[in-house]
């Protein structure tokens, strides 16, 4: 585990774990309070962007892979990841548009619409099962890396 910063796969694993933990923290406004929820959400953009940057090769390849002769599972995985990205943006956008702590603190006032409240609540709930499917589709990689991360280094 000591060389995780040098190894891309291990670096991805650590960053993805941090992303999952921060996602769970951000997604529990009932526990953290709305104010902290909104500030955490702002900082959540950082691990989310890191996740995209660390999987840049996959993003670049994905569009051409979609047109190639690939398995149904891989095609589903690519489309699902695109949908997850759009859903994440919808949660972000709707969240900022219903902000009651973050934007007022930055001296930005908005007329909060019931539509965005509903969209934020529904999309934030719906993104959780979507994430569950995303994790299941990549479970092979997660388990393989977990073993590699915690394997005792050869003496």
């Amino acid at each position: 585990m000591s060389n995780w910063k040098q190894n891309l796969q291990k670096f991805r694993y650590v960053m993805d774990t941090l992303l999952l933990i921060s996602f769970m923290l951000v997604s529990a406004p009932q526990a953290t309070g709305v104010s902290l929820h909104e500030w955490f959400s702002l900082f959540f953009i950082v691990p989310f962007a890191i996740h995209l940057l660390l999987h840049w090769d996959w993003i670049q390849r994905s569009s051409s892979r979609l047109l190639a002769n690939i398995t149904a599972r891989e095609r589903f995985n690519i489309i699902w990841d695109y949908l997850l990205y759009i859903m994440m943006l919808l949660v972000f956008v709707s969240g900022f548009l219903v902000s009651v702590a973050l934007l007022p603190a930055l001296d930005i006032s908005l007329n909060i619409q019931d539509f965005w409240s509903k969209i934020h609540h529904d999309s934030a709930t719906f993104i959780m099962p979507m994430l569950g499917v995303h994790l299941a589709l990549n479970l092979g990689w997660i388990l393989k890396l977990t073993k590699r991360m915690f394997a005792k280094e050869a003496k």
Partner: peptide, 28 residues
């Protein structure tokens, strides 16, 4: 429970679809 239940809800909402997906993938 006010602090625990939201995280339990998250675990269920993420975990159940994850297990279902694994089951369906295995079935396929």
């Amino acid at each position: 429970l006010m602090y625990i239940l939201p995280f339990v809800k998250e675990l269920v909402l993420i975990g159940v679809p994850m297990l279902l997906t694994l089951g369906i993938a295995k079935l396929f």
